[in-house]
Nucleic acid binder design. Structure first.
Lengths: 151, 151
DNA sequence: CAAAATTTGTTTACAAAGAAACAATCTCCA
DNA sequence: TGGAGATTGTTTCTTTGTAAACAAATTTTG
């Protein structure tokens, strides 16, 4: 007589529990969940923060390059940038050298705001993976960097 | 004179390149990209495969429990299950004990199909992270399991 | 040089996923 | 027992992201 499964930890995942794609998805969802629980006043989404952060460190970066680095598709990047422009956080400039391209810069207000949000973000980030030891966390970071080709 | 940034590897990510949330997102996108490149004939999406796999190993599992384990929201689970039902892959049964719940089972066709797809899936999975050594891959898996609480 | 191919960004249409409100059922306890 | 609250699933609406077709500018190459 099989009893019906009543709680999530009784579920048999078989080999799925060592599938990297599966584990990575669970990990990312867990991280995002906490992000939104803790983001508070800054009301930036993870994608918005990373875009603004990268523009801060690479003023005049082109949309296409930004998208390649952050793995955001061009169609989506267009919408992200427009939304940021509507909030007066970024400005777009068509460079003389290549009039197809768009170069993005932060507005002064955005610089202040991103600097402030980054203080929250990186202290939040440091608290991600609190159930790992410091060494394990460091190892995980290094392995992920190698995995994605940023090491 | 700042030269404009022309390629993705010139982009300065500053501390973002050690942020677990960021690395995890890149890793997952990379894995999904390869999944769709290689999935071939099976035309199952990652979410569909994992749902079917878990039902195979837990026949009669309830929608809510399935969703908890796979971190799929109830509203979305309803749609996934209906889509699978429309393809005649799962059947739904309201148990006598609790007439709010829905118990899910694979159809015989689905059992065959999932077994077959799983052969592809797990050999694909084994090839994920080919740029890591076997030891690193094993370490990454273990760290992720601990991170998400499956260890 | 001029036609062909590529790059860059936008638009439109659509798919995937979440949020909130809802209905039905069940549980708990006064 | 019976009513308040919780659980389960569905529906509707919105957000997020992708795909494909397109336009404009640039690069390549015959």
């Amino acid at each position: 007589m099989d009893m019906p499964i009543r709680t999530a930890d009784e579920v048999d995942l078989d080999r799925l529990n060592s599938a990297l794609g599966f584990l990575m998805r669970l990990a990312q969802l867990k991280i995002y969940e906490r992000f939104f629980e803790e983001v508070g006043e800054h009301n930036l989404k993870p994608g918005e923060f990373s875009v603004l952060w990268v523009i801060l460190h690479n003023p005049g970066i082109r949309q296409s390059v930004l998208g390649q680095r952050l793995m955001i598709k061009r169609a989506h990047m267009t919408k992200l940038i427009r939304a940021l422009e509507d909030q007066n956080l970024v400005s777009r400039k068509i460079p003389d050298g290549d009039r197809r391209a768009v170069e993005i810069t932060l507005t002064p207000e955005a610089v202040t705001r991103v600097r402030k949000a980054s203080q929250w973000f990186f202290s939040y980030e440091a608290s991600v993976g609190a159930n790992l030891t410091a060494g394990e966390r460091q190892q995980l970071t290094a392995l992920l960097q190698k995995f994605v080709g940023l090491g």
